[in-house]
């Protein structure tokens, strides 16, 4: 199934960029999630990554709930990919990963060395997730040898490095000899860091073990600004994100030249259908990127738009 999917990635006459809806990184209620994915099912998105990435305490969705959702999305014509925690600390974290690794119903995205170990030991193909440190071609070749079949580049990697690591004219090939598609972080708050500490709980003067799940209050995380009031970062439990949305909608040519064939759109609590539709129109429909930028700016998401990482600058920068 996976091979078919990749063949389709490459087939001529098809849409140039496949759109991936990344995992929901903030903590939403089950109802909000179900509504969100119902809208995604109707959207132009091709692939949907499902699972809790940030906090092992978040419990709105159990493993079986994610599986059920994955089956529903597949029935709606989407390619579901399952993923797990990016920071693996306990045996119960490992148990969840083992379950993902052993059940071969869906492709799994690896978030850390533990997942890489369990998936490669199980002989499963996997997506090399954005938190796996691949910074050069040799590293990508290694991960392809052990089962990597698709690569989500680390968010801080510039497009020129992506082009060097997995160039379209000389791509890294997986165990099945099929070229690894590259996915870039094309829209959404950037996942900048993980900690053992929960910054949301800390802000509310609560202990992590007794946090009251206050992160549920902020569907797009807690905004952190500089002392001058400039939006800078977003606190999302143990994760620190950018306040701004990385947005590569104006970088169609550079993405193509870098061999990127998949675009990750990271969920935001409102306006996300607009984001998907906008990317589909510009990246696959030939619409004017400037128009797309205007439309995305009009969503007035906190922190504005940035694309510095793609251009080998500070991530917070914007290159028009």
């Amino acid at each position: 199934m996976n091979a078919d999917m990749e063949e389709r990635d490459m087939a001529p006459g098809k849409r140039e960029f496949r759109l991936t809806v990344g995992p929901v990184l903030t903590y939403w209620s089950r109802t909000e999630l179900m509504h969100f994915y119902a809208r995604v099912a109707e959207s132009a998105a091709d692939t949907v990554v499902l699972g809790e990435v940030v906090c092992s305490r978040r419990h709105e969705m159990k493993a079986d709930d994610w599986l059920g959702l994955a089956r529903d999305l597949r029935a709606a014509g989407k390619e579901p990919v399952l993923t797990g925690l990016a920071l693996v600390e306990s045996e119960s974290d490992l148990r969840l990963l083992r379950r993902l690794a052993q059940d071969d119903e869906f492709l799994v995205e690896a978030g850390d060395g533990s997942a890489l170990q369990l998936l490669s030991q199980a002989g499963r193909p996997f997506v090399i997730g954005p938190h796996v440190n691949v910074y050069n071609r040799e590293a990508l070749e290694f991960h392809a040898r052990i089962g990597g079949c698709r690569w989500v580049a680390p968010a801080e990697l510039p497009l020129r490095d992506i082009a060097r690591i997995n160039p379209p004219d000389d791509p890294v090939r997986g165990r099945d000899e099929i070229a690894l598609p590259t996915e870039a972080w094309a829209f959404g708050r950037l996942p900048l860091a993980f900690s053992a500490r929960c910054f949301t709980a800390r802000h509310h003067r609560l202990r992590k073990d007794d946090c009251g799940f206050r992160c549920r209050d902020d569907a797009d995380g807690l905004l952190l600004s500089t002392s001058e009031g400039q939006p800078f970062l977003t606190l999302n439990g143990i994760q620190t994100q950018s306040a701004a949305q990385q947005c590569l909608i104006g970088d169609r040519g550079a993405l193509r030249a870098a061999g990127v064939s998949r675009l990750r759109l990271s969920p935001v609590a409102r306006g996300f259908e607009t984001v998907i539709a906008c990317f589909e129109r510009v990246m696959n429909g030939g619409a004017d990127p400037a128009e797309g930028v205007r439309e995305l700016r009009a969503l007035a998401l906190p922190g504005g738009l940035v694309n510095g990482f793609a251009h080998a600058l500070a991530g917070v920068d914007w290159v028009a």
Binding site: H131, N133, E156, L190, L192, A193, L233, S242, F309, G315
Partner: peptide
């Protein structure tokens, strides 16, 4: 796993 510094400075 921390890109805070590159986010601010590159």
């Amino acid at each position: 796993r921390c890109a805070l510094s590159s986010y601010a400075t590159g």
